[in-house]
Design a binder for these strands. Structure first.
Lengths: 249, 249
DNA sequence: TAGTGGTCTAGACCACAAA
DNA sequence: TTGTGGTCTAGACCACTAA
């Protein structure tokens, strides 16, 4: 089965190979089944072994395969948590759960960063920032109240309309060419305040999950979001990878 | 400054190069300063460009550098969140905060997985598992109540003593050669139950942060932990990386 | 011993950014 | 146009696993 890779437009070879392998695993392979050896894949698809390894490394980071030196490369058996975005997106998470996500932009304004915010965003106080208040619903049930802060200089010309028409991260990518390196999130369980209780339509007796997110591009914070989720409905899931730092233990 | 790499025992070249670059950045470089070009580093240290790229890729994943095509590789300016383990460890997190961590093993037992647990661990009901109840303290203040479940077959001969003498993850590595691929964590805000309130020494009026962790090795769950943290003291922080999946959007 | 993944080399061309 | 990171090749040797 010498399935050489079609030279699709623009996409690098290792990316095309990833898709081929994903398709193959989904359609004809079982959990823990061994994939062909790297040199074998290299021959089958007519690419170099380095390219094969680049594709396999990405699949390994996605948790779709695991490799054992001396034995081979195998299909990961997990099912439930598969494909969870390392990066949380309310929209995609809700779709995976079979719910219809909805996002309402409650307010959109421009202001200057006061001390507190400037420290969060690691910018100088007084820098112009957008403040965006959004209510996120799943099947028309309020789930999450989000307040996002973005430096104006990184997102010039951002409007409420644009946010309502697309998701924030899609907008980041398509219109501002944002390349996220990583994000830091912090979780805390808190008593629900009156405003949040009202927006989420619940009693203050129900505790809230407070989520802070710092999004980094080129080592710089380009988004700070503080969210409150209703504790009785909302479970927030993340996927972690061991830091490369463990190499130095 | 032709600092060729000393052939240290065992460690691969790219790992040695990482350490050299980290040291150089820490001692003599400023945020956003440009590193030498890849080809230049390759010459300076006498290694191939592929090896340089392997080292830089790891540093990029750690958030220590960022790369811009056509421009160069730069030192990340962040300070506060730097070096946060992608992987949460209570002990290291507390040390970073300048607090003294303490871990008490309250109980250690072996049992068979009932339906509920078997589903969490994705094993057959009836499989022998360890159940470990631990209380984690920072500066002698109770912070976290953890219940961990491990399949006995993966950790034969595990004892309470061993757990008390070392941290769990250190034990995993040194004694059982565990190679963690990734972990999934889920967060939820809940009302504190009586037992947790008692162990954590707080009122039930304070909400708790419920944390579930599924740790994966070779695509298989080797640890399931359910934790409760006191909401008024404990903030749980994680570091995320965008999933490779975004390539397919 | 044979086969696997892990590391490394030397070189090439491409896409992008800045002067 | 020059220099950068991004992709890719062909080949080599090492470390580990299993027969």
């Amino acid at each position: 089965m010498n399935a050489s890779l079609a030279p699709k437009e623009g996409k690098p070879l290792y990316s095309l190979l990833m898709q081929k392998l994903l398709k193959k695993m989904a359609s004809s392979m079982k959990p823990d089944e061994r994939l062909p050896a790297e040199r074998e894949i290299s021959l089958q698809y007519g690419v170099s072994r380095a390219t094969v390894r680049q594709a396999l490394a990405a699949l390994e980071r996605m948790g779709r395969i695991y490799r054992v030196q001396g034995r081979g490369t195998f299909v990961s058996p997990q099912k439930v948590h598969q494909g969870l975005p390392g990066f949380y997106s309310f929209s995609t998470a809700m779709k995976k759960l079979g719910k219809t996500p909805l996002s309402l932009v409650l307010s959109f304004s421009e202001r200057e960063a006061e001390e507190y915010l400037a420290e969060k965003l690691k910018v100088h106080p007084g820098l112009p920032i957008y403040q965006i208040l959004r209510l996120r619903l799943a099947d028309n049930e309020p789930m999450l109240l989000e307040t996002s802060y973005l430096p104006v200089e990184r997102f010039p010309g951002l409007t409420k309309q644009a946010l309502e028409e697309s998701t924030m991260y899609r907008l980041f990518r398509s219109r501002y060419g944002v390349e996220i390196n990583h994000a830091i999130e912090a979780f805390q369980s808190v008593q629900t305040d009156a405003r949040t209780a009202q927006y989420l339509g619940m009693s203050r007796a129900v505790p809230s999950l407070r989520i802070e997110r710092f999004t980094y591009e080129r080592g710089r914070i380009i988004e700070y979001t503080e969210s409150f989720a209703r504790g009785d409905q909302f479970v927030y899931t993340v996927r972690l990878e061991p830091s490369a730092k463990e190499e130095f233990s």
